[in-house]
């Protein structure tokens, strides 16, 4: 498939936003049960939610560049019963609204304790909103990934690993950003976030490499034989019916030489996984913001390459019909 930058930015930016929110909420959960110190509502959760919103809004904005008619974009909410894309279009703004609410409740301290259990664990309003937002965050990961995973003849995508990878890689980049944010605030949660970011990145490494191995062994179900229905071992296309370009020759092939394709795979394998893990581990205990910031930048750029590769690797069966001018 041809990787569109609008979709690459949409999926990576909203992944960071979702991951950052999940990091903030994980921190809050741990602080409720007093495993980690309680953070400042105003500067930590309020501003943190705002940063998550900026990333989500960036993703939403870039998605409009993918459309031929952005002004009709609202129509995309119509078919949520059948279309994962439609579901994403509904869930993304809903998630943004909930993150905004979560941030506002923290920022303006509109955070009454709703109930208390075991006498010293206080469940306040933000914790309840956050729980709901967490569910929606995972739903958004599911919707985004299922857009690709539900197309059964794009065999490179049609696997549960797609959903797992989107979730883990988005969360990992979000936790890395949370580490930068916490280091900037000189928060005691810095190492907590860094630890989670390392764990999620390593988990992502396992699942992403699994999907690479799976895809390298794929046997495509469609062949020229089934495409034109002629049973012969030797079929060669002599003409695709036109000599100029068409939508079919542009949209379904990445157009990069094989060497670039291979290079990008190694770029993302190095930039998304070992480099951030190394930098995060180095930074732990030192609160060195520059190291964490570098880790995030490298990981995000690596994720752009990862998403490019994700699209480029998918081999659409329609390409069988377009092999020779």
């Amino acid at each position: 498939m041809h990787p569109a930058f609008s979709v690459i930015f949409l999926t990576t930016l909203s992944g960071v936003g979702q991951g950052l929110f999940l990091a903030l909420y994980t921190g809050q959960l741990y602080s409720v049960v007093e495993v980690v110190p309680v953070e400042d509502s105003h500067s930590h959760y309020g501003v943190g939610s705002l940063i998550a919103l900026v990333f989500l809004a960036g993703g939403l904005l870039s998605s409009f560049f993918h459309l031929g008619h952005p002004e009709r974009g609202w129509r995309a909410m119509a078919r949520w019963r059948t279309s994962w894309l439609s579901r994403e279009v509904i869930v993304l703004p809903a998630f943004m609204g909930l993150v905004a609410l979560y941030g506002l409740v923290h920022y303006f301290d509109l955070n009454p304790v709703l109930f208390t259990f075991r006498e010293n664990f206080h469940v306040d309003l933000s914790l309840v909103i956050g729980a709901l937002t967490t569910v929606v965050a995972f739903t958004l990961f599911l919707c985004t990934a299922m857009i690709y995973a539900c197309i059964k003849f794009l065999q490179e995508w049609a696997t549960p690993l797609t959903v797992v990878n989107y979730t883990l890689l988005g969360s990992a980049s979000g936790f890395t950003l949370a580490t930068v944010f916490a280091a900037y605030n000189q928060s005691p949660l810095t190492d907590f976030y860094a630890g989670w970011a390392v764990l999620l990145t390593l988990a992502g490494l396992v699942t992403r490499v699994s999907s690479l191995i799976r895809n390298s062994r794929i046997e495509h179900k469609s062949t020229l034989r089934t495409a034109i229905g002629i049973r012969h071992t030797k079929i060669v296309q002599k003409s695709q019916g036109f000599m100029a370009g068409s939508f079919n020759t542009r949209e379904f092939f990445h157009g990069a030489p094989a060497s670039v394709f291979k290079l990008i795979k190694w770029v993302f394998l190095i930039a998304v996984f070992p480099v951030p893990v190394l930098l995060l581990s180095l930074g732990m205990g030192t609160s060195a913001i520059a190291v964490f910031a570098l880790a995030f930048v490298v990981q995000y750029l690596g994720l752009l390459a990862e998403r490019w590769f994700f699209f480029a690797q998918a081999n659409h069966p329609q390409n069988l019909y377009y092999q020779t001018v």
């Binding site: 031929g68 008619h69 129509r75 995309a76 894309l85 003849f153 469609s222």
Partner: peptide, 25 residues
């Protein structure tokens, strides 16, 4: 009604849908 998101062309294994470059649908 078409917003020109091209998703249907991805979901067609036969490659018979084309975006019109002028009308963007």
């Amino acid at each position: 009604k078409c917003i020109g998101c091209k998703y249907c062309s991805w979901a067609c294994p036969y490659g018979v849908r084309e975006v019109d470059e002028h009308q963007k649908v």
